[in-house]
Design a protein around this nucleic acid. Structure first.
Length: 422
RNA sequence: GGAGAGCUGGCUGAGUGGUCGAAAGCGCUCCCCUGCUAAGGGAGUAUACCCUGAAAAGGGUAUCGAGGGUUCGAAUCCCUCGCUCUCCGCCA
């Protein structure tokens, strides 16, 4: 969420950002400011009444101590009115604050000025690209090859759990493990601290990173215990420091974590869900940064470079998109998508999304630091995948495929695989 | 899963209905003193919000695991939940 004071001082900028992100109207901005005004007036009144009551309560205490029961009784009678009004006000304030926050949650983060204005994915800008996209020619799509070779068993996965929960078999399972190790090692080498995180989170954590109240449909739930299966490691890792205040020396904080991710992906169909293109359970190594507000622009660029270097080392052609305002999402100020080339399908597949959230997430989870002047200030958060496995595996199976139907192991994975052919 | 004990500021820890946002100690910051070092003295040291103010600052409210309740008044009493510890059971 945005800072209400920021909205008050930048009303037009916030509205413009909203429209650029594809919202049809901006009335929430005016409404939220009205609600806030109302809330502040009520709080002022409530504080005044409470101050009055506190003074009277103290007087009563003193009188009781002196044994002047009658005078005390008289005062107690007087407090009755106040008490009722305080109760009324408290309820009213609770309601108004709820309404205000609901509006506040509907206002998206303001895009950075460097983000191209646009409506759809057509308006995204190719920031850079690497390698030559290969033609399909004799190449099979990964699902055909992997099923034929009994490397991935989609059908048994469906039997055991459901669609989108495949089994990886033998060397394919080992390839998964190798990629996870490779990604984690690279991140640690770049200065990220490895974290092993819980796979379930509670409601507060889901709220902290913004999955609730908006996107709870994407998550699997464990209702009996009130848990959510994580859709990404971002949720537990960013919440790791929820409600904390950092000192300057502790910054920046950089974490990496491998976790499985679970996503319900309701409503997906067709070519998007063929093979490994979109799963309900998949593996991902995530990169998370918590940084000083002045550093977040720079940190986004290094985050992107860190993610890109993985594809370069795997020698998988990719392109990096700078997402336009309309395609970048609600919570980001700026976002890059990395898309790997899938020669078997002759299409680009998203394998990483590197985002700067500014203070949007930090505010929600009260992630703060003491600045140069000793004042408490919101931090900035960023995250990006480094990388999500299935589509990397898809691209790899297709890119490293030989005409004979073998798949060579990329150089950087050979020490993990201890083989040069899968 | 069952039984019991507990949860107080950066930390340790006192506080069982009123003057307690909270003793004391440790830590930290600043100042003083001492030719270095050690020791000593003094002051300060939570968070959020509201109001006044250009600001500096001042005033107010809330917060003692979370939420609710009793009361004129709650760290203190009651209820629900969470967490920690101990014992039993179960288990990789």
């Amino acid at each position: 969420m945005l800072d209400i004071n920021y909205i008050r001082e930048n009303r037009d900028l916030v509205k413009k950002g909203m429209l650029n992100k594809g919202e049809s109207e901006t009335s929430a901005v005016d409404s939220v400011l009205e609600k806030d005004e109302e809330w502040r007036a009520l709080v002022t009144e409530l504080d005044r009444l409470r101050a009055e009551s506190n003074i009277k309560a103290k007087e009563i205490g003193t009188l009781m101590g002196q044994g002047k029961k009658d005078e005390a009784q008289a005062l107690i009678k007087e407090t009755g009115d106040n008490k009722e009004r305080i109760k009324e006000l408290e309820e009213k304030i609770h309601t108004v604050a709820g309404e205000r926050d609901e509006l506040l949650y509907r206002i998206p983060n303001v895009p950075d000025s460097s983000v191209p204005v646009g409506k759809t994915d057509q308006d995204n800008v190719v920031h850079s690209s690497w390698g030559e996209p290969l033609k399909a020619e004799w190449r099979q799509p990964h699902w055909e090859l992997a099923s034929e070779k009994k490397w991935i068993d989609f059908d048994r996965g469906s039997k055991v759990t459901g669609a989108g929960f495949p089994f990886y078999i033998g060397k394919m399972a080992r390839l998964q493990r190798s990629l996870i190790n490779f990604f984690l090692n690279e991140a640690v080498e770049k200065g990220y601290t490895e974290l092993q995180a819980p796979y379930f989170v509670n409601e507060n954590s889901a709220r902290g990173t913004g999955q609730i109240p908006d996107k709870e449909d994407m998550m699997y739930t464990i209702p009996r215990d009130g848990f959510f299966a994580i859709p990404t490691a971002e949720v537990p890792v960013t919440n790791f420091h929820r409600d904390e205040i950092f000192s300057m020396e502790d910054l920046p904080v950089r974490y990496t974590a491998y976790t499985p991710c679970w996503r319900r992906e309701a409503g997906s169909y067709g070519k998007d869900v063929r093979g490994l293109n979109r799963l309900h359970q998949f593996d991902k190594v995530e990169l998370v940064k918590i940084v000083h507000p002045d550093e977040s622009d720079k940190e986004l660029e290094t985050l992107r470079e860190n993610a890109e270097s993985l594809l370069q080392k795997l020698k998988l052609p990719y392109r990096t998109l700078l997402m336009c305002t309309g395609d970048m999402g609600f919570t980001q100020t700026k976002k890059y998508d990395l898309e790997v080339w899938s020669p078997g399908q002759e299409r680009w597949l998203e394998v990483s999304s590197c985002s700067n959230f500014g203070s949007f997430q930090a505010r929600r989870m009260q992630l703060r630091f003491k600045n140069e002047k000793g004042k408490t200030e919101m931090l900035h958060t960023l995250n990006g995948s480094g990388l999500a496995l299935p589509r990397v595996v898809a691209a790899l199976l297709e890119t490293y495929q030989t005409e004979a139907g073998d798949v060579m192991v990329p150089d950087v994975l050979q020490s993990f695989m201890e083989e040069d052919l899968i």
